[in-house]
Amino acid sequence: MFWGLAGIVFASLVLAALALNLALNSNWPWLIRLSGLALVGVFYWTTAHSIGPLMGWATTHAMPERFSLLAVHVIEPDKATSSKGSIYLWVTDLQHGRGQYLPRAYVLPFTPELHAKVTDAATKLRKNLPQLGEVDPAPAGGTEYGIKAPNINFYDMPEPLFPER
């Protein structure tokens, strides 16, 4: 998330620098220069209020190599609507240690193999067996949003050596 915000801040600074130079170095009337600066203010406000509605929705970003599975939601393919289907996973990242507890939602292309695996994993979750997911670097196949379905395997979460506080 840090790099996402850093990129937006960088682009905002670029726009501010351009607008300032427009105000100082162009031959436009003062009214137009002032309108340009006001427009940049509107841009900042619009961007700030556009980020919020984007939060919470599943991402096509690469999944962590190891994660704890929290929940699964499957939309199966529908020939009537030509929908290829999707598989949504709600996970916490274990790749960088248990400290990364913020859950994140991912969307993956529907494949029968992945559907079978997540269905089994979801069944075990309901039986109170925490599930650990590992992503195999080699993609399994299936494409949606230009993203290939990763090869994911689920295992029963190993017991911790010491109980968590």
Partner: peptide, 9 residues
């Protein structure tokens, strides 16, 4: 920059 922002609650 926007994809890293997606998915979080």
């Amino acid at each position: 920059s926007f994809p890293p922002l997606l998915g979080w609650p």
